[in-house]
Amino acid sequence: MFTVCPYKEEDAAACGDCFYEGFFSCPVDQNDKILLRDYAQVLIEKCNFTYVAETEDHQVVGFICGKYDKHFSKALAARYEAKKHYGCWCKMFLKFYLKRYKMSAPFQKQFDAFFRQLQERDKEIFGKCDLELVALSSRRNYRKGLGTALVTQFLNRAKAEGADCVRLFTNTLASWEFYEKRGFKKVAEKPFQDGSDNRSIVYEYRLREVYETGMPDLVKKEEEDGV
């Protein structure tokens, strides 16, 4: 069982660990972990709200973020639940582009590939939505409904605040089937620019369509994947 609760500033390092375990497979050293922590913190602070999932012993094992579109609600888009550390933002990006993190060679290779995948995100294809599901990252060895618990909390929050359209960006290198099993519909797809067989995908969840029929019972779905 997992407890899903709002993100706290002291969760940043654990979220960095979750980010690693959701997207990378190579060994990492302390320098790599510093970048993972900083990246996760910047991502979270750019979003309007973040939830973490904790085990019974209060270990953070997953997180999920949401970012509101100002065209949907300027008030919600201007409200951020995590304190913004603008100095940390600038320091992180400057340090990254100047290659001061001194990442290990295996991690550098995987992170560069991850960064190239992010650049496949096309704003025009992504389109406008009330709320963007920005990140779902979790430990691979927890396949006990962790992802489902986080997505359920996310959708409940979206419904409570009046959002109609939730969208997320992923690709065929990630566990995109996770969302299809939970009622998300594919609305856009585009091949990678590198000519590979991989594709960028946008999924959408229309909350208005489930207001009358009721929210799907996601808790019964035990499969758990990451974005």
Rank of each mutant, 00 (worst) to 15 (best):
E120K: 14
E120T: 15
R121E: 14
D122E: 07
D122K: 08
K123V: 12
E124M: 11
I125C: 09
I125Q: 14
I125F: 15
F126W: 10
F126A: 13
F126D: 06
G127K: 15
G127I: 13
G127T: 12
K128I: 10
C129W: 09
C129Y: 08
C129K: 09
C129S: 14
C129V: 14
D130G: 06
D130C: 09
E132D: 13
L133I: 09
L133K: 10
L133S: 11
L133E: 14
V134M: 11
A135I: 14
A135F: 11
A135L: 15
S137R: 04
S137W: 00
S138Q: 12
S138D: 07
S138E: 10
R139K: 08
R139V: 01
R139G: 00
R139A: 03
R139M: 05
N141W: 07
N141D: 07
Y142Q: 03
R143W: 00
K144L: 04
K144E: 02
G145T: 02
G145C: 03
L146G: 02
L146A: 01
L146E: 02
G147F: 01
G147T: 00
G147E: 00
T148V: 04
L150M: 03
L150W: 03
T152P: 04
T152Q: 08
Q153F: 07
F154C: 01
F154W: 06
F154R: 04
F154G: 02
L155P: 15
L155Y: 09
N156Y: 11
N156L: 11
N156D: 12
R157C: 08
R157Q: 05
R157T: 06
K159T: 07
A160P: 11
A160I: 09
A160F: 11
E161H: 15
G162C: 10
G162A: 08
A163C: 14
A163F: 10
A163I: 11
D164Y: 10
C165M: 15
C165Y: 10
V166Y: 06
V166Q: 05
V166E: 06
L168P: 04
F169E: 12
T170S: 15
T170L: 14
N171Q: 04
N171E: 07
N171I: 06
N171W: 07
T172C: 04
T172G: 02
T172I: 02
A174M: 14
A174R: 09
A174E: 13
W176E: 10
W176L: 10
E177Q: 13
F178I: 05
F178R: 01
Y179N: 05
Y179C: 06
Y179W: 07
